[in-house]
Design a binder for these strands. Structure first.
Lengths: 253, 253
DNA sequence: CATTGACTCTAACGTTACGTTATGGTTTAT
DNA sequence: ATAAACCATAACGTAACGTTAGAGTCAATG
């Protein structure tokens, strides 16, 4: 019972073109053909095809398959073992690539965090300006003209170590804020600790400290969506909670 | 400090052709070139090349690299994650292939074992012949002319079930032989059990049984290296031990 | 019986990322 | 000035088919 290309192709799930190709390169040439040139595959041809497809499944190049198929003397076991080795090598390389990608992604996240921090730095600059705009007069009245400028300068001129301490403190505040928030009470010890540390954190960048400025900043945290987002990132509603805690801490509620 | 192709190629460890190729497909066209048409790569070109090679290391197709490189808006992270996924899929497929190869190798070993058994079948055939040659006259004297031929016929005509029982018994004998051998005594109960089962095993293929033939076979186990190898495979010295056990069992020592 | 739809054939270009000549001009050291 | 080293473009080769394209074949249907 001889079969034509399509039948064979459908039978084993490959394309007609593939059969043509195998014929072209002499890998599998059907024993017989009709007078009109149609390829006719015998059962034996099918068996051979199965063999071929088996090795193909294993990613053997057709040339190798041809060798393996054509000479039974060819050591199939050795060929398989060799191929296996090759595959393991490939796998190793892929794993290496995945590792590299993971590292890169980590790195990129890191850079994005850096970028976020840089953005926040910009916020802080802006904060100083805003601060000045809103409370500038007041500050100037109380502490003289240079204070506002000094604040700015202090932040810019901060040493690397101080900067480190400051950012660490910043992290601590965010983490504490989370815990404090679970108490639900801005007057709780934890919340008050956060407010205190927030003051300490401010001292790093502010040349002078005033309750009014602190409150103003706290209000800004809620009003300015960028700051709100920053604190809400840690806890939803964190900005408001922090403001309330600060208000209580400063006795201005 | 502009560099010419070879210099760049050597610098980053790729071929000149590769640089030509990247120029051809518009992946990396040096900013400048001499009036005589020599490509001149700037530092910026080198940086770009590094990027390209990074993605190439990860098996990104050049087309993708071009996309990633040319539009910074293109989400590198997403591209990497996607690629990572692809690599994992590749790895999965490779692992599947390795598994298949392992199974196949197992199978092939199995077939070789089968082949070994078939070989042993041939041995048995030969055994019958040998048996006849050595003890033929004797057997013929005692049991008539047809006995030898009948033995042969019986083996060949054995039912599938009988054959199964026989080979199972064969395995049991080999396993028992191991245990018995540890006693070191061919007269031990265990060794005698082996001898008894060996007799039973013989009955499967022999049309008639005689002590003499059994002894003759036992001697052949030691004398014929092929049989010796077969029994020694299970225990070193197994052939001799089995013979001694049989001799004792038959009371012919 | 002719038409139609389903198949079949050969031929040839396209794909990927360069390697490998081949042919000829340019630069540089001797 | 000449050779060695380097540069350029052009074009074929590789692996395993996919994809038209043009044309012939076969079986069933109107």
């Amino acid at each position: 019972m001889k079969r034509k290309v399509k039948e064979v192709a459908d039978l084993v799930g490959i394309s007609v073109r593939t059969l043509h190709h195998y014929d072209e390169i002499g890998l599998l040439s059907p024993e017989e053909s009709t007078e009109s040139g149609y390829r006719l595959y015998s059962e034996d041809d099918l068996e051979l095809l199965q063999q071929i497809l088996f090795f193909r499944e294993l990613d053997f190049p057709l040339k190798k398959i041809k060798e393996v198929i054509n000479s039974p003397s060819f050591d199939r076991q050795e060929a398989l073992r060799l191929h296996r080795k090759m595959l393991l090598e490939k796998r190793r390389r892929i794993e290496q690539m995945v590792k590299t990608i993971d590292k890169t992604l980590q790195h990129m996240k890191g850079e994005i965090q850096m970028t976020d921090e840089e953005k926040f730095e910009v916020f802080k600059e802006k904060l100083i300006n805003d601060n000045e705009q809103k409370y500038g007069e007041e500050i100037r009245e109380k502490y003289g003209d240079d204070t506002a400028a000094a604040s700015n300068a202090k932040l810019r001129g901060m040493s690397q170590e101080d900067y480190q301490s400051m950012t660490n403190l910043e992290k601590e505040i965010l983490s504490l804020l989370q815990k404090a928030y679970t108490t639900g009470d801005p007057a709780s010890d934890l919340a008050q600790e956060v407010a205190a540390k927030h003051k300490a954190w401010l001292m790093y960048s502010w040349s002078s400290y005033s309750k009014e400025a602190h409150v103003g900043l706290a209000e800004m945290y809620v009003a300015d969506e960028r700051f709100a987002a920053y604190y809400d990132k840690s806890v939803k509603g964190g900005a408001k909670f922090l403001r309330d805690a600060i208000l209580i801490y400063l006795g201005m509620n």
